[in-house]
């Protein structure tokens, strides 16, 4: 079944989604909306988001900046449209709750958020290894996700807290937190340091460090950084029986390297103690299939009623709540932010 799709927000992400829908074959993109429409996209372009509904879409792809996401999502649900929305799901957990309330009034509709890292091949492999019990109990996780700020950092809407809700943590670190929550389900304790080092003329963080513990005792450490100067993604999972690491992540920019999964099972000595440096198996992934798998899951959910496993609104709420707890756990940071907010008023 072909779904009629309209894309609200036809920037980089909107166009990536458009290409993925074309590859899938189960969508017909009937219209798109953006502030800039002076180019040929091969589909009708408009600046008023309400106009896309004139094209009678079945599904809405919401690819707008964070602060506009709740309005677009709630409007689409109200009009009876299935919705695929980019992450982060708004600016804060209240935004997610608002969208969940709209979702609850239309249980027949699908709402899915684009936490696409769960669909990366190396991550799926890691999940299979952990879930299947091959690695034994999970002890701890380490995640590093970072980059070099970017062009026009200070002018970018992503670094205006009123529009985005925060800095590098909510923009990029959120993906790592989403993965942590996939492996550990939830954290009962959160400690953090949130900092602004290089871009001191914007009020959002360019580094966040968090140390978290789940009720089962799994410890996770996150470093999310905009001042890492090299693009880097590392996720390490240490278990009773060995370890898994994912180095690099295939991305639209192609700058985070090849995605390399390393997995090792311990070799034991005669007394049953692990011998250091076990043989590890390395698998390199060179083709990013995450966008396609994500779109396919959404299509299956809409057309066949298949459950959404990745990017549910519950997961969105969990990860946004965790982001807020990380901000809140650094009292120096919260008082700085309160000062900024007061000055802004």
């Amino acid at each position: 079944m072909t779904l009629r799709a309209a894309i609200i927000g036809y920037g980089k992400m909107g166009q990536i989604r458009h290409r993925a829908m074309e590859r899938h074959g189960g969508f017909e993109v009937v219209a798109a909306c953006d502030t800039h429409t002076g180019f040929d996209a091969g589909i009708p372009l408009m600046t008023d988001p309400m106009q896309v509904y004139d094209y009678d879409p079945d599904v809405i792809f919401c690819c707008v900046p964070n602060m506009m996401i709740p309005d677009v999502v709630c409007e689409a649900l109200k009009r009876g449209k299935h919705v695929f929305s980019e992450k982060p799901p708004g600016r804060n957990s209240d935004d997610v709750r608002r969208m969940r309330a709209a979702e609850a009034t239309r249980p027949e509709l699908v709402l899915k958020f684009g936490f696409n890292h769960r669909f990366h091949d190396a991550i799926e492999n890691a999940r299979q290894l952990i879930a299947g019990g091959t690695m034994g109990d999970l002890y701890f996780m380490r995640g590093v996700y970072g980059k070099a700020g970017g062009a026009n950092y200070a002018q970018n809407w992503r670094n205006d807290p009123d529009q985005s809700g925060g800095g590098i943590l909510i923009d990029q670190g959120i993906h790592m937190l989403d993965l942590f929550l996939m492996f550990a389900e939830g954290f009962s304790e959160v400690q953090s340091f949130v900092q602004r080092k290089f871009w001191t003329d914007v009020p959002v963080e360019d580094n966040a460090f968090a140390l978290m513990k789940s009720p089962e005792g799994v410890v996770a450490s996150l470093h999310s950084s905009a001042t890492q100067w090299q693009h880097k993604f590392i996720l390490e999972l240490y278990t009773r029986g060995g370890f898994i690491s994912v180095n690099g992540i295939l991305s639209a920019s192609g700058t985070y390297g090849t995605e390399v999964l390393n997995v090792a099972l311990n070799r034991l000595d005669q007394d049953g103690n692990p011998i250091p440096n076990p043989e590890s198996q390395e698998i390199r992934f060179t083709e990013d299939r995450s966008w396609d798998k994500e779109i396919a899951e959404f299509h299956d959910a809409v057309v066949h009623g298949a459950p959404v496993l990745c990017g549910t609104s519950q997961q969105a709420l969990d990860v946004m709540t965790l982001v807020e707890r990380i901000y809140a756990a650094d009292t120096d940071w919260t008082s700085q932010r309160a000062g900024h907010a007061a000055r802004a008023v």
């Binding site: 492999n125 299979q128 290894l129 299947g132 091959t134 099972l265 070799r267 043989e279 198996q281």
Partner: peptide, 20 residues
């Protein structure tokens, strides 16, 4: 030799997990 044996056994374990 033991490491070679372990390598074969671990190969089977990891493939089992992945082969789905």
């Amino acid at each position: 030799q033991e490491f070679e044996f372990v390598s074969v056994l671990n190969w089977i374990r990891l493939t089992e997990a992945r082969a789905a």
